[in-house]
Nucleic acid binder design. Sequence first.
DNA 1: TTGGGTGCAAAGGCTTTGCATGTGA
DNA 2: TCACATGCAAAGCCTTTGCACCCAA
Lengths: 155, 155
Amino acid sequence: MPDNQERFKKLLRENGLKVTSQRLMILEALIKRPDKHLTAEEIYELVKVENPDIGLATIYRTIQLLSELNLIDKLNLGDGQVRYEIGQLDKDHNIHHHHHLICLNCDKILTFEDDLLDQLEDTIEETMGFRVVDHEVKLFGYCSECAEEEKSKEN
Amino acid sequence: MPDNQERFKKLLRENGLKVTSQRLMILEALIKRPDKHLTAEEIYELVKVENPDIGLATIYRTIQLLSELNLIDKLNLGDGQVRYEIGQLDKDHNIHHHHHLICLNCDKILTFEDDLLDQLEDTIEETMGFRVVDHEVKLFGYCSECAEEEKSKEN
DNA sequence: TTGGGTGCAAAGGCTTTGCATGTGA
DNA sequence: TCACATGCAAAGCCTTTGCACCCAA
């Protein structure tokens, strides 16, 4: 996973941009954070622990940069907050988008991988001539714990 | 489809709310507009043609109301704009969410229906215990016209 | 009549931008 | 050295809110 950092540094150099401690710390925060899906404000708070002088504007500028470099994904998980997560690279160095399960009760976010969509994408290309290159899937519902809770309430 | 209007009026009365010309005009705009997927600002401009005195705040308040009454869906199609569309009701009076195809070249938005997801949702419930109640699917790519264009450019 | 609705302007969030200063290469 | 980055504060958007007036029921 420090792979991500090397990749970032390399991309910065390739684009004539500078490797700064702020940029590295922001990437770090996104990598380290267990639950991921951080908002700009959350990244700001995390980085401030190590560097109290950092400005929120730098967070926003770096997020934008990471996004342009395809290192992070921007997420809208339905709570009106904009969130970001580190992209998972596959062998071909393409971002492998996973899907999100969003619990309507506790707001927990789970992820899963699936290739059922490939099939769907083929069908769409055949029938509508639309060539799919990326997708975003969100499923809303209740996680196992909350579903359990609901069930016991009903009885 | 004037069905939607009757439904709206009924819901308003049931909730002790008033049927006003502004509310009806806003719903109308969402129903009539061929391409649908309007932003608040676009709805404002459309309604202003008939009623130049209407305020943007009324648009926002009505959008929120329509959303709470489950008559419209809020969409985030990836362009950073918040859009709204009339919900399509099925026989059981539930909103039937369709999926969106977003052309990365011309920004055209196509929709399609599919029940392939039902299968996926069952699998998720079985393996993860997550009970899915709603979903949102966006596919990004190139529509037939733009894909054609791309192809001819390559040659 | 009267409580909810509307228009207007002001206030709120979040994000971006301008500018002087700082710093990696 | 010097172009790019940063921090700060101001500016920009979009959306919500407070309030006096209005109008469906």
